[in-house]
Amino acid sequence: MSIILNNVSYTYGEGTAYEMQALKNVTLKIDDGEFIGIIGHTGSGKSTLIQHLNGLMKAVSGEIYFNGRDISEEDFDRKELRTRVGLVFQYPEHQLFETTIFNDVCFGPINQGFDKNEAGLRAFEALRMAGVPEKLYYQPPFDLSGGQKRRVAIAGVLAMKPEVLILDEPTAGLDPKGRDEILDLIAGMHRAKGMTIILVSHSMEDVAKYVQRIIVMDDGQVFLDGAPREVFKYYEQLEKIGLKAPEVTYLMHDLKNRGMAVDWDATTVEEAKQSILKLFQ
């Protein structure tokens, strides 16, 4: 199973004064079970890209295949696609609307056509997966803390049992602990369920620590695509498009320039630590 993008382009406001090409001939293959990070500065086309993956936006040209089928085909069920490729928007807690947390999480499964019982079962499972304490299930969602609300919103998407989960900056506005908790939660789902995960992030440190593959977007195009170590080797090019490598990568380069034989493409604190300690053995 996979998602394939072939030469996908998208233009906002075509034929108006504000015409802007947001995606330019993007070709990508996303395999089952991958944990991918998408990085790029604001306006690089990240958000447009992920909205194409679940069919919320329609490519102006090019094709998108989900499990081998072209999603633009007449008889392709795009509503179903949205439930199989779950998308968690930025600040997802702003979309909560029901009187209780539980009812809110049921919204997705009920839209899928499940009866109350099945929807409820799925909601329970999703809430548990998202780590929402059980005593909160029948509370209104609006009184929760920011981190809790976000878990509920993520559960709202998980309840549809998507095969692919896309999250647009799921840690925006959270404090350091809240950020780590959400990222650990996502990594846990990837490990335990083998879910395909696509994480849009502004934090190079987070991406380096968690994902297996990084897609760098710039000006509507795929700028780099590879494992974190590979991608962050090009930190000078990344700086040119307004991005950076993780702090430790710079440190390791610095150490290497000072004549220390360290592993200079380390991207996480743990990797850097191991490599530096090796010097002193």
Binding site: G178, E247, V248, F280
Partner: peptide, 30 residues
Amino acid sequence: HRLDVPQATLLAYELKKAGLPLPDGILTRQ
């Protein structure tokens, strides 16, 4: 207190814990 430290500080702290003779309170990678 649900906070963390900059990466350079964290790495220095980890290395110190592993036995390297580093001073406390390193703030920058330089």
